[in-house]
């Protein structure tokens, strides 16, 4: 699957990026109405060109408002947002030329065919009649909808509609593609297709912003993730860096068996592990077929641990770093209460 974003003629699509920061959000605030709730209470982050950036947060955290400001649909009450160096409240048309969005809910024109949905969109972006048809057919082919171009979109399945929306978003070769909870309700095939498409776009230099509840998705795809809650960024790091925020989940897990030549060792793995510097707590989590699995929590020196196990007359079968899932991090940071 290859989605072309390069313009063959150079005559359509937005200009190439001019700044290193695709999106800069500074002190963004948004209050709906004069005395309504403040949905966003001072958010800061920036997204580099060519990055896949995740915005994670519970429902009502302020993700959609933030996306709305970036796409010029929501007027901020404070702070500023730059897209490729352009202020979203002042250069709306230039900003819109550089962006595309795959919305949370399908918003295809249901009275039109698939092809017409794409050519209408292209017309708004200034493509000539011939160019818009060519570009639309090319993208329909790429998203696996060739031969279905004349179907009315109200006959499309959820997955097909999603692919058509992606094709529509890519028509004008955006520098920045924003996906607002794109995989909600998709089957695994459609989700994998979307992930492949996102990686492919990134390899061609497109910047992607993804909002999602799906932690596995964010973990797989995103270079960096901002976790947003109650209108604020509460954590911003790489997926790996975020996992380190789980205090209890740092450590190692070892699987050992008693060595054939036990020699002078005690043969007690738990004791060997506990004697290692940096281990705050250690537990035996499994014992089966002569193998013992021990988890050691804390900033453990793995090399030292291995030496001590060997001296205790134990043979190391497996050693792995303990890492919590992103979901654990998310719940750890945002709490368990329902929104």
């Amino acid at each position: 699957m290859a989605v072309s974003t390069a313009s063959p003629t150079g005559s359509f699509g937005p200009p190439p990026p001019t700044t290193a920061g695709a999106i800069v959000v500074e002190g963004l605030r948004k209050r709906y109405g004069s005395d309504g709730p403040e949905a966003v209470k001072g958010i800061d982050f920036s997204v580099a060109q060519g990055e896949i950036f995740g915005l994670l947060g519970p429902n009502g955290a302020g993700k959609t408002t933030t996306i709305g400001v970036i796409t010029t649909r929501v007027r901020p009450t404070g702070g500023r947002v730059l897209v490729d160096g352009l202020d979203v409240t002042q250069d709306q048309v230039a900003v819109k030329l550089r962006l595309a969005i795959v919305p949370q809910r399908p918003n295809l024109d249901r009275s039109l065919s698939a092809l017409e949905n794409l050519t209408f969109h292209a017309a708004y972006f200034g493509f000539s009649r011939k160019a818009r048809r060519e570009r639309a057919l090319e993208l329909l082919e790429q998203v696996g909808l060739a031969g279905r171009e004349d179907d009315r979109v109200d006959q499309y399945s959820g997955g097909m509609a999603q692919r058509l929306i992606i094709a529509r978003a890519l028509i004008h070769r955006p520098q920045i593609l924003i996906l607002d909870e794109p995989t909600t309700g998709l089957d695994p095939q459609s989700r994998l297709f979307l992930w492949d498409t996102m990686r492919d776009l990134q390899s061609r230099g497109t910047t992607l912003i993804l909002t999602t509840h799906d932690m596995a998705e964010a973990d797989q795809l995103c270079d960096r993730i901002a976790i947003v809650d109650h209108g604020e960024v509460i954590a911003l790091d790489t997926p790996r860096g975020l996992r380190k925020l789980l205090p209890s989940e740092q450590g190692v897990e070892v699987v050992v068996v008693a060595a054939g030549d036990a020699g002078t060792g005690t043969g007690d793995p738990l004791e060997a592990v506990r004697s290692t510097p940096g281990v705050e707590r250690a537990d035996v989590v499994a014992e089966a077929e002569g193998r013992t699995t021990v988890r050691a929590y804390g900033a453990v020196d793995a090399g030292d641990l291995v030496d001590r196990l060997k001296r205790a007359g134990l043979e190391l079968v497996e050693l792995r770093q303990l890492e919590g899932s992103l979901e654990d991090v998310f719940v750890h940071l945002t709490g368990r209460e329902l929104r």
Binding site: T71, T72, R73, Q92, V93, A94, K96, L97, L99, A100, I101, P103, R105, N107, L108, D109, R110, H121, Y124, F125, G126, R168
Partner: peptide, 15 residues
């Protein structure tokens, strides 16, 4: 309901 207008509002035109 259909939100079709959202795509139009993202076209490079003033609202």
């Amino acid at each position: 309901f259909t939100k079709e207008i959202e795509d139009r509002l993202l076209a490079p035109l003033p609202a």
